[in-house]
């Protein structure tokens, strides 16, 4: 095969471009937590499964009841949906007798929007209908900007945003950390109602400190656990459980503002195993690299112009 001098040089140039690309892909700048970020610490070992958070959530957000199966009397969703922003799910194994045990045990887990440090939904939304608050880091939704593409539904690693399929003018539905209550000086309804402090509201940096404290506790010994909000001053005494040495949400998908503690592996509780980088980092970096300084588009445009011109000359 004969290689022209010109083609050889062209190949060299494109090779140089590719060589520049990998560091840009790998070195995704991980976004750091906002200093005043607000979040929830959910401690599965403290949860008693009373579902008061679900009741409070529906009341605070004016959500309708949801019925699963033949029973139409009380609210019993089986998953997050366009009618349910927050749900308590139950893990059960064997005879299901012992709390927080993998074998023959049971445990509860609360599912809701994780309010990621670097949210995929915000990145994927072409209309900026989903935005992350610059101060509190809460991911909120603006129905007037939404174009209904549902990219957010697909891109969310936690499967959180839900689409109102049954509505004539559908919206995306997800937990917004009771933003409408926060402006009134209240806290998220799920946390203010939780009897045991399993759902604890507060600034993420304080919640992270609290996770450190809990993981150092001696299992079986009595400790004071704050309830409602970390700064509420109210506490309840509970026996410390045997925590697994992992705070879910500390690093998952670049970190989340909803943190989890549990007595068993998180994948058993239905929380996905995720890498430490945000999901959209790769796509975002490729795009950002391609459009950086408009160099590559201009090069591509130049190439196209050249090709068109040459083809035109040949035909003549």
């Amino acid at each position: 095969m004969e290689i022209k001098r010109r083609d050889f040089l062209k190949g060299l140039a494109s090779g140089a471009l590719l060589a520049v690309a990998p560091p840009a892909l790998a070195g995704s700048p991980k976004k750091s937590r906002l200093p005043d970020a607000l979040g929830i610490l959910y401690d599965s070992t403290l949860c008693v499964g009373c579902q008061v958070c679900m009741v409070a959530c529906k009341k605070a957000n004016n959500m309708p009841d949801e019925h699963y199966g033949p029973q139409k009397i009380w609210d019993n969703p089986i998953d997050l949906s366009a009618k349910t922003l927050n749900i308590i799910k139950e893990y059960e194994n064997g005879n299901g007798k012992y709390k927080d045990r993998k074998i023959d045990g049971y445990a509860f887990v609360k599912r809701q929007c994780m309010h990621c440090v670097d949210p995929s939904c915000v990145s994927a939304c072409p209309a900026s209908a989903l935005t992350k608050d610059r101060k509190t880091g809460i991911v909120t939704y603006n129905k007037d900007a939404c174009i209904g593409c549902r990219y957010c539904e697909i891109v969310c690693p936690f499967n959180i945003p839900k689409f109102q399929w049954e509505e004539p003018f559908p919206q995306i539905v997800k937990c917004q950390l009771c933003s409408h209550l926060l402006v009134k000086g209240e806290i998220a309804a799920c946390c203010s109602e939780c009897p045991t402090g399993a759902s604890l509201f507060g600034p993420v940096k304080d919640l992270l400190k609290e996770t450190g404290r809990r993981q150092k506790m001696t299992p079986g010994k009595q400790y004071d656990f704050p309830i409602s909000s970390i700064s509420s001053g109210k506490t309840q005494t509970h026996k410390a459980a045997r925590y697994i040495p992992h705070v879910y949400g500390e690093n998952e998908a670049g970190g989340t503002q909803v943190l989890y503690l549990a007595g068993m592996p998180f994948n058993r509780l239905g929380l996905p195993e995720l890498p430490d980088r945000p999901y959209t980092a790769l796509a975002e970096n490729i795009q950002h690299m391609l459009y950086k300084g408009m160099i590559l588009p201009i090069v591509a445009l130049g190439g196209l112009i050249f090709l068109v011109k040459r083809t035109g000359e040949k035909e003549e």
């Binding site: 499964g49 579902q51 998953d79 799910k89 139950e90 893990y91 299901g96 049971y106 239905g270």
Partner: peptide
């Protein structure tokens, strides 16, 4: 636990 709890994987 109450029988009405949602399963982990619905």
């Amino acid at each position: 636990p109450a029988a009405a709890h949602a399963p982990i994987r619905a």
